[in-house]
């Protein structure tokens, strides 16, 4: 696992956007072989989305050959509701980049057969050869997507009941009316995320500090579902200084040191590198 620490959320967003742009360029996607990208919602990825949008506007990045899969969507909320993830993704990202609408996938929380919707979502990912890079965030309680504490670490895309914490936290988006907050969501599973060839997680803000510590400094635990990331061969966490508040000094120093080594390795590897291959540095 790599942990990259930057000063603040804006710089974190810029770093990840640069990283994704490089990955897409190195992949050289075509219509027949698109780059498959997993995407999160929430406030954490906003600086990343803004930076990516700026790249599209200055024409240093294109999503013409990118296919996206979103992590989750509420059940029963109209697609054009202000709080739906369809609305969020359109407003904050899709409307401002150049992705063809047919290449956007978001779970349909209003599908008649919700189980079939989940199954076909996994199927679509599979047909495209799996997800190349899954971008994610983390909840205060360490959840990834809607895989709340206690979720199976082997879970796939499915219907999920929201934790009471999450419902309370979301009430502010529904006029503080708890009864109006959806109680269920469709979400990719922990295993769906881990299946991606690369997982990049954004962790910013002091509120996430404990979750970050639990995720990387303790064992794999279904009460902190993102800790399953420890089992992934090529994971990257990008965090700001605030979110490192609960980490041991030793941990921070270790990851800072391997980041420097990683840079050196990349320079050395750059020459014989074959296009489209990601560099699996020895430090990972």
């Amino acid at each position: 696992m790599r942990l990259v620490i930057r000063d603040d959320p804006q710089i974190v967003g810029q770093y990840i956007a640069n990283y994704i742009r490089k990955r897409i360029h190195d992949f050289s996607p075509t219509p027949e072989r698109p780059f498959v990208l997993g995407l999160p919602t929430g406030s954490t990825p906003l600086p990343t989305y803004k930076a990516l949008i700026a790249m599209v506007k200055e024409k240093t990045l294109s999503f013409k050959n990118v296919v996206t899969f979103n992590m989750d969507e509420y059940v029963g909320l109209p697609q054009d509701h202000q709080q739906s993830y369809h609305t969020f993704m359109f407003r904050e990202f899709f409307s401002q980049i150049d992705i063809p609408p047919s290449q956007v996938n978001i779970l349909d929380g209003n599908a008649e057969d919700l189980i079939a919707e989940c199954t076909s979502y996994e199927q679509r990912i599979k047909e495209l050869g799996g997800i190349e890079l899954f971008l994610g965030g983390i909840g205060d309680d360490g959840h990834i997507a809607f895989n709340e504490p206690g979720s199976s670490l082997a879970s796939r895309t499915r219907i999920k009941t929201l934790a009471y914490d999450t419902i309370l936290a979301n009430a502010r988006f529904f006029n503080d009316d708890i009864s109006a907050v959806p109680r269920m969501a469709l979400t990719v599973g922990v295993a769906t995320v881990l299946d991606a060839r690369e997982v990049v997680v954004i962790v910013t803000g002091q509120r996430k500090a404990l979750a970050l510590s639990k995720t990387i400094e303790e064992g794999v635990n279904h009460l902190w579902t993102l800790s399953a990331l420890q089992l992934h061969p090529w994971a990257l966490i990008v965090t700001d200084e605030d979110a490192t508040a609960e980490l041991h000094v030793k941990t921070v120093k270790y990851f800072k040191s391997i980041e420097r080594v990683q840079e050196e390795v990349e320079i050395i590897q750059a020459r014989p590198k074959v296009k489209g291959d990601s560099i699996q540095a020895a430090v990972a």
């Binding site: 697609q79 369809h86 359109f90």
Partner: peptide, 10 residues
């Protein structure tokens, strides 16, 4: 309706 055009009309 931009959002509908995007998601429904694709």
């Amino acid at each position: 309706d931009a959002q509908k055009t995007f998601y429904k009309r694709r």
